[in-house]
């Protein structure tokens, strides 16, 4: 069988394709961040025998406020730039992954070009605002 390929320039690479790939990769990224979160919490919370609920809460939102009311005595390891960066990336991927899902539903059901463009803009604004608020909370707590 002879090899047949079509170059990127010829087959086109647009927003649909980019977001199709991004949505899949962002899902994988979230699994990775959740894994990092659960391993980190297990290591940091081992001495205080952190319970399951607190562990899971940290896994999906590594915000030091979330361990403030637990029996964790020293908050310093939970407040490092590493965890803030991890949390920020998690917020960004979760918001963009979820909102691309919303966008897919909009584009499935709405065909009017003007309305579709407007709702794309609304989704983009929600993405920026949600991500900004999430990151602000993470870096100021």
């Amino acid at each position: 069988m002879k090899s047949r390929t079509v170059s990127m320039a010829k087959r086109g690479f647009n927003f649909e394709t980019t977001m199709w790939i991004f949505t899949r990769l962002s899902a994988l990224a979230m699994y990775l961040f959740a894994l990092i979160g659960v391993i980190g919490a297990l290591i940091m919370g081992a001495r205080t025998q952190m319970n399951m609920a607190d562990l899971i809460r940290w896994t999906f939102m590594p915000n030091p406020n979330h361990v403030l009311n637990t029996n964790v005595a020293d908050l310093v390891p939970w407040s490092t730039a590493f965890w803030k960066l991890t949390g920020s990336a998690f917020v960004f991927f979760a918001a963009s992954h979820g909102l691309h899902g919303v966008l897919s539903v909009i584009e499935d059901y709405l065909t009017h070009p003007g309305l579709r463009k407007f709702l794309r803009l609304v989704v983009f604004v929600i993405l920026v605002v949600m991500t900004a608020i999430g990151i602000y909370v993470l870096w100021t707590s």
């Binding site: 069988m1 090899s3 047949r4 390929t5 079509v6 170059s7 990127m8 087959r11 394709t17 199709w20 790939i21």
Partner: peptide
Amino acid sequence: KKALMTGSLE
């Protein structure tokens, strides 16, 4: 979809 991503028609 795969052909769109990779360009391969194998």
